[in-house]
């Protein structure tokens, strides 16, 4: 049975971020992916130089969305949105997602509120307010912010388990979001202390609206710089959650199983990326090094750090239990 998804995110001619990181993995799992490119760039901005432009809201994007929704009368099993460069486009896209969902109530909408990472905002500040407005439309089923993006949405820092729980509770209760996945959290965010003693550890926190308990996955840290990781994560999560929700009545179990599967695939993909990058870098640099740390804004080394989305194809259909066991966010600590 064919299934279709509308993907709205960036396009780069070279490399794997945005749609280039999300679309192929979804297609390999049988999704017909309709895609709208929010930008057309030569490459991602981490290279230090790039060319291209964003889509025009009124003259280009709106007519395309109108055509898909009203003329072709398309309906999707799922919608996924990622990097959107400005608030005008965010407002327009959210209005059309609302209309698509009105037409087909079972459409699963995954919002990745791409705004920044590690306390660095890489969209205009007006985007933050616009994303908060989307949340009030009651259309988001799955949200996948990182810690910084979560902090921007709720308006305060996540400094410990208590603030994390409060923030996730806000997403469930105030915005009616069924599935919350915080894709990366520092160790302090899951501890009872405010100080960071375990800076080498990163966590992924998940929660479903119908069950109050937050589950944590510890993620291995690979010490090099890859872009597009979040985009691949969201695409894989959408595929696995959609599939697992059809297999299980238990939403909480479906989400936790999906995230464990996604983390397993991500881990395999990153390991492959790292080993191929190292091979090619050594060939390029004419030496044999066993460590590799990417430098942002360095065009010469950045090209070795592209995710190996194509070569990782064999990993995407993984449907076993996953290699990651969740633990409960310790309530004693809160």
């Amino acid at each position: 049975m064919s299934k279709s998804v509308l993907s709205i995110q960036s396009h780069v001619a070279h490399g794997y971020v945005g749609g280039k990181a999300a679309i192929f993995p979804l297609q390999t799992q049988g999704w017909d992916v309709d895609n709208i490119n929010t930008v057309e760039f030569s490459n991602h901005t981490g290279y230090g130089s790039f060319k291209g432009s964003a889509i025009d809201a009124k003259n280009e994007l709106q007519p395309i969305l109108d055509q898909l929704l009203h003329k072709l009368e398309l309906s999707y099993e799922a919608i996924i949105t990622g990097y959107i460069p400005n608030s005008e486009l965010i407002a327009l896209i959210s209005d059309y997602v609302r209309q698509f969902k009105q037409k087909n109530k079972s459409t699963l909408y995954l919002l990745d509120p791409v705004m920044g990472d590690n306390n660095y905002l890489y969209v205009d500040e007006s985007c933050v307010e616009q994303y908060k407005k989307i949340l009030q439309l009651d259309i988001v089923d799955i949200i996948t912010p990182n810690q910084f993006e979560l902090e921007l949405i709720v308006g305060y820092k996540i400094t410990n388990g208590a603030t994390l729980q409060k923030a996730i509770h806000t997403l469930h209760s105030q915005y009616n979001i069924k599935y919350v996945v915080i894709t990366s959290l520092g160790a302090e965010a899951v501890s009872h202390q405010d100080s960071s003693t375990e800076s080498e550890k990163i966590y992924c926190a998940i929660s479903v609206q119908s069950s109050p308990q937050i589950q944590l996955f510890r993620i291995p840290v690979i010490k090099s710089y890859f872009t597009g990781v979040g985009d691949l994560f969201s695409a894989l999560l959408l595929d696995k959650l959609y599939t697992n929700l059809q297999l299980s009545e238990d939403n909480s179990h479906a989400l936790s199983r999906s995230v464990s599967q996604v983390l397993t695939i991500m881990s395999k993909t990153l390991k492959l990326t790292h080993s191929l990058a190292l091979q090619e870098y050594n060939k390029f640099a004419g030496k044999s090094s066993s460590s590799l740390v990417g430098k942002i804004n360095d065009g010469d080394t950045m090209k070795f750090f592209e995710l190996r989305i194509i070569q990782a194809r064999k990993f995407y259909d993984y449907m076993d239990d996953g290699e990651f066991q969740p633990t409960l966010l310790d309530s004693e600590h809160i």
Binding site: A13, E40, F41, S42, Y47, S49, K51, G299
Partner: peptide, 18 residues
């Protein structure tokens, strides 16, 4: 819309840069 001549040129230039 069709991609403008300017954007096609830019995309090639950007690619050539990397």
């Amino acid at each position: 819309k069709p991609t403008s001549s300017e954007l096609v040129t830019d995309l090639f230039k950007g690619l050539k840069g990397i």
